[in-house]
Simulated assay, not measured.
Amino acid sequence: MTWEKRAVLPLRICLVVLFGVLLVFQTLSLPGQFRYQAEQHPEDADARWVLTGIAVFLVLCVQVVVVATWKLLSLVSADRIFTPDALRWVDVILGAIGAAWLVVLAMFLWVGFHADDPGAPMLLLLVLVSGTVLGLLMVVMRALLRQATTLRTDMDAVI
């Protein structure tokens, strides 16, 4: 058994745990946190629903990445990773990262123009740059997967 195949089960366990934690955050923790902030600071209560919606959407983007990663692991287990199906799931991951990146960019711009201290804009800039790196890395990984898929298809045709 190869190391790649040995890593599939622990990674799946981690993905299930991660998805569960994200679900708790999405349904309980984040809405509760914004409700509490609205109660403590009634002057900012109008932002509660916007912030809850943004937070839930960003968590949803991470959940989409988790599900797509699960599907890619299924292709690895079936030795079908070098197929067009894998490229579609990588495209799903890229779409989720892109959607989250756009939302974080909008938050960065809004906070940047309205902030009175640099803390929040700098934190959002860190998230934005990290998301950019992750997205570009996935673009490179997709290109590598596409090349490997083409080579595998060519080899299967020869054999």
Rank of each mutant, 00 (worst) to 15 (best):
F34L: 06
L109E: 03
I97N: 02
I81N: 03
R80T: 04
L123F: 04
P31E: 00
Q40G: 08
W49E: 15
W110D: 08
L105Q: 00
V111I: 09
P31V: 00
V103P: 02
T149W: 05
G112R: 03
R146K: 15
A86H: 09
M155T: 15
Q37A: 14
V64N: 07
F57R: 14
E39T: 14
L18E: 06
A38Y: 02
C61D: 03
V139D: 07
W101A: 07
R48T: 06
V103W: 00
M141K: 14
V129K: 05
M155K: 15
P10A: 09
G95R: 00
L9H: 12
M1L: 11
L15F: 01
V56G: 10
V158E: 14
P31N: 03
V90W: 01
V139G: 06
T150C: 07
A120F: 08
S74D: 11
M107V: 01
L75G: 08
G135Q: 05
L109I: 10
D91L: 02
Q26F: 11
Q147Y: 14
Q63V: 02
P31W: 00
R12N: 10
V127Y: 03
V90K: 07
S130I: 04
K5E: 12
F34C: 02
R48L: 04
A86K: 09
T52K: 07
G112D: 03
G112T: 06
I159Q: 13
L75M: 09
L136A: 13
V133I: 08
V90Q: 12
A55W: 07
V21T: 06
V16I: 08
V111A: 05
A7Y: 14
T69H: 08
V66T: 10
R35L: 13
H114Q: 11
L144C: 12
L75Q: 09
L9R: 14
D79M: 05
V67M: 07
I97K: 03
P84A: 05
E4S: 11
V62S: 04
V103H: 01
W3C: 06
G119R: 15
D79A: 08
A143D: 12
S77W: 13
D79P: 01
V111Q: 05
